[in-house]
Amino acid sequence: MFSNISIFVFLSLESFVYSIGHTYFRMDAFKRGQFKFRSLPRCLSLAIRSISFERLDNRPLSNTPSLPRRRNGISADSYNEIRKLILQAPLPTAVLQRSPTKEFSLDDIGIPLAASSYYILTLINECSTLVMFNKDHELCRIDLSNLLVLVHDLCWSSKLNMFLMAGYSLYTFNPRSCILSTIERITLARGEWIVSITIDSNSIYLLYSSRSARIECRSLFLLHTLEKQWLEKDFLRQTDFLAQCIRINQWNILAMTIKQKDGGWRVDLYDSNNLYRIHRGCSLGQGVPGMRNCLVMPYNRLWIVINNCSIPEQVILLDENGRMKAKTHLDKPRGCFNLCLVGDEWIAMNVKDKLRLYKVQS
């Protein structure tokens, strides 16, 4: 038979355990709710997090009439408000149909394009002139004609705070000092060049063009040591002709634009850790003979395809399984173009002799 003191201690322990479990459940529910917002643009995430969440206080987690109906740890009213924000977010295909929010002169055609949340970098005059902007004005122009630099693709590294430029060699460009440097440790064979470059948090992925194409994964940092390598047979099929552009999103999914031997283009999705093909994308249609300019960029969990190989050129939105979600033809001057994200709120486009900026949230 328990003494009064024993009963008191037992009840106190039971109350303590219940309190811990109750608190853990509430924190877990909140974390699970927050996790769902990570794939959204920053502007939506900030709006969602500004919504006030109701407290449960210390009331039991039972279905009592006094508690409002809840979904994923938040009240039904808050859930509906979040859902409304998400549904109202415009698709990139719709954003690019608007008039540009801002426009700057390039004076020549430039295809390579990349951006951080502040800087926008492109090359013009057959890659002999590097031009840098921010969201308000042009910052500088640098003549590269004496350096014999040829660049096919660009990307931004937030870890290095520099642009990486790939072509007949691999280069870095520091936007603060405006210094261009060659990465000497990466040497290319004669007749070989880097077609496309992309990075994840700690690695560089390089797509080479030669008699036998390959993809290398190298360390992002000083020694740039080779970590992994895949040959053409690992990512192209017998019916494929070439790969042209690679990009990685924050979920370690690598997208690749592929030209088939019948002239059509598609985008395949791979696990970037082992280059295992996750989804074989749908056909984007026949391309212009000889044209090799079908590009892709991540947009949260979606993918934007810049199809310069069709007439007129197209912007195609693919879902996370590589299926076509939306497609639009752009009313623009003749000539190839490219797109990139400037932070989470702007899309930059270089088209013929203009750099255009489109605000995602109007």
Score class of each variant (00 low, 15 high):
I124G: 01
L106D: 06
G167F: 02
R176I: 07
I183D: 00
D107I: 00
E320T: 10
T257A: 08
S66M: 12
P65M: 11
R185F: 07
S75C: 07
K36E: 13
M162K: 14
S310P: 03
W346C: 02
Q244F: 06
V149Y: 06
E54A: 09
L317R: 15
Y358H: 05
I111S: 04
C127Q: 07
V149G: 05
R38E: 06
M27L: 09
S99F: 13
E313V: 04
S177D: 12
L67K: 08
P90T: 05
I186L: 08
L341T: 07
E320K: 09
P100K: 11
I304E: 06
W156T: 02
I194L: 05
N273P: 01
Y168I: 13
W346H: 00
D143E: 12
E81V: 04
T93P: 01
W251R: 12
N174D: 15
D108E: 15
F104Q: 01
I51C: 12
V9C: 01
F53A: 03
F35E: 04
I5Q: 05
L144P: 02
F16A: 00
Q34A: 08
I278A: 07
A326M: 11
R237S: 07
F10Q: 10
R237C: 07
N125C: 00
R266M: 04
E103W: 06
S203V: 01
H279T: 03
S181A: 15
V131F: 05
L46P: 05
L121R: 00
C43H: 11
L160E: 09
C336L: 08
S3Q: 04
L317M: 13
E216M: 14
V296A: 02
M27T: 05
K354Q: 10
F35C: 02
Q97N: 09
I186P: 04
L96Q: 11
E232C: 11
H279S: 05
D108V: 14
G110K: 06
N58D: 14
N252T: 01
N338Q: 10
D57W: 13
N293D: 10
G21Y: 11
L46G: 13
N293L: 02
N274R: 02
K332N: 11
G263E: 07
R214H: 13
L220T: 03
W346T: 00
I111M: 08
S45V: 15
D331E: 15
Q314S: 14
R185C: 11
A213L: 12
S3E: 09
I124A: 03
S12L: 08
G110H: 03
E14V: 06
K359H: 05
L67A: 02
P298G: 09
S78D: 06
T328D: 10
N161G: 03
V351C: 14
F337G: 14
A213G: 04
S283H: 00
L121K: 06
E103R: 14
L121M: 11
